[in-house]
Amino acid sequence: MGQRFFGFEKLDIYHLSVEMAAEVYRISAAFPADERFGLTNQLRRAATSITLNIAEGSGRDSRKDFAHFLMQARGSAYEVASALDLAVRLGYLTPEQPQEVLVQAHTLCAKITALARNLKAAP
């Protein structure tokens, strides 16, 4: 991405979430066509929601609001993990395929939690 105009573009968690969302799109591309409006859509929306909540929260007027949106983003990361588990159980993915995304989600959740705590603790 070229020039940066917004504060969220400086956040490590934003870049991690974009990378994770792109990987979710890649691995879900092979899901069955009849899942296009089901699990595929839900998984992709959850992954995208992470990045969107980080961006939206960073534009809010208060640290409390930003922390709230970060917790929404974290919840979406949990949703991604759950959807990937279901995709494996349904045979759409091998157990190995979602591992990179799951590691990214775990790392992202830890970083989101830390930032939200810092925001809430700041005066």
Rank of each mutant, 00 (worst) to 15 (best):
M1K: 08
Q3M: 05
R4L: 06
F6Y: 11
L11R: 02
D12Q: 12
D12V: 10
L16M: 15
L16F: 00
V18P: 03
E19C: 14
M20V: 00
A21E: 12
A21G: 09
A22P: 00
I27L: 14
S28K: 01
A29T: 10
A29S: 14
A30C: 09
A33G: 01
A33Y: 01
A33K: 13
F37H: 13
G38K: 04
N41M: 11
Q42P: 06
L43V: 12
L52S: 14
G59Y: 06
F69I: 03
M71F: 05
M71R: 13
G75N: 05
S76D: 07
Y78C: 10
E79R: 00
A81H: 09
A81Q: 12
S82I: 06
A83V: 00
A83G: 11
L84N: 08
L86K: 05
Y92E: 03
T94V: 02
Q97Y: 07
Q97T: 14
E100H: 14
E100W: 08
L102N: 15
L102K: 15
V103W: 11
Q104M: 15
A110W: 07
I112N: 01
T113F: 11
A116T: 02
N118D: 08
N118K: 15
K120G: 01
A121S: 15
A122E: 08
P123E: 10
